[in-house]
């Protein structure tokens, strides 16, 4: 077993502007009468509800579900960023690499070189480890002499390529990815896909959230479909896709999501 989730529930508060106000919090504390739930301007969202699955060594899991079905919440919980409200996740101490948000901690005033070190540090790498991987990162990103310029001079494609290169420079045990990468030109996309495949083959497990069934079919041998935070289907990719086509309402919901950039 490489990665497993057992009855994982996740609830989290979503705060409105009023709930951020210290004045209201103080006034609430002082008021004598009963507390009004709706006054708190805070909603508790149940993002995951009893999610259970087990991945064996070498399994590549696809995650599908419409927007807000809990894909990102599940990925973040697997990564240890969110702590489950109940249930638990077992990854047996594996090194987990996340690939979620492209905007992670960049410093636009700093050079590409400095940002590569910054990003590496955020990924838990030491200075020496980043230094050792640095040449490879620069070469893969194709940034060349741009590397010593502030990244505010970069195009968004160049920033994407740089971030991708850092994120994939270190082999993790478990790879967690949200959405496919739409970084740069077609040529880079081919290179990027090869790099991902290389990581995936060496990784013990991968979890990959996407709206694109063809990508899931190509990369994943397992598929988990989430619906309102609950597991709707889990199993062999082809079987689940088949089961989904037998349940048209689900396909309809998922189909509407297969839009580039959504």
């Amino acid at each position: 077993m490489a990665l497993s989730a057992h009855e994982v529930c996740l609830e989290y508060p979503v705060y409105g502007i009023a709930a951020r106000s210290l004045r209201r919090a103080v006034v609430r504390g002082l008021s004598v009468g009963g507390r009004m739930g709706q006054d708190h301007n805070m909603v508790v969202v149940r993002a995951l509800n009893g999610v259970t699955f087990t991945l064996n060594e070498g399994d590549r899991l696809g995650l599908m579900g419409h927007n807000g079905s809990g894909k990102s919440s599940l990925l973040r919980t697997l990564a240890g960023i969110y702590k489950p409200t109940s249930g638990h996740i077992d990854s047996s101490g594996a090194v987990i690499s996340t690939f979620f948000d492209v905007g992670l901690g960049l410093d636009v005033e700093a050079t590409g070189r400095e940002n590569i070190f910054l990003l590496g540090m955020y990924r838990g790498k030491t200075y020496a480890e980043i230094k050792a991987a640095f040449e490879g990162i620069v070469e893969f990103s194709g940034l060349g002499s741009f590397i010593d310029l502030p990244i505010k001079t970069y195009s968004s494609g160049m920033i994407g390529r740089m971030m991708f290169s850092v994120a994939t420079a270190f082999q993790p045990d478990i790879l967690l990815m949200d959405e496919w990468l739409s970084t740069g030109d077609a040529e880079f996309m081919i290179k990027a896909e090869e790099r991902i495949l290389e990581l995936v083959t060496k990784a013990r497990a991968m979890v990959f959230a996407s709206h694109a069934p063809d990508l899931i079919r190509r990369f994943c041998n397992r598929l988990l479909v989430l619906h309102h935070g609950e597991v709707l289907h889990f199993g062999e990719t082809s079987e689940v896709l088949e089961a989904m086509s037998a349940a048209p309402h689900v396909v309809e919901q998922l189909g509407s999501e297969v839009v580039p950039g959504s």
Binding site: L78, A79, G80, H88, I89, D90, S91, S92, G93, A94, V95, I96, S97, R123, G124, K125, T126, E129
Partner: peptide
């Protein structure tokens, strides 16, 4: 050194 915090384990 990898940060142990990167890994998710029950403990």
């Amino acid at each position: 050194m990898t940060f142990p915090g990167m890994a998710v384990s029950k403990a």
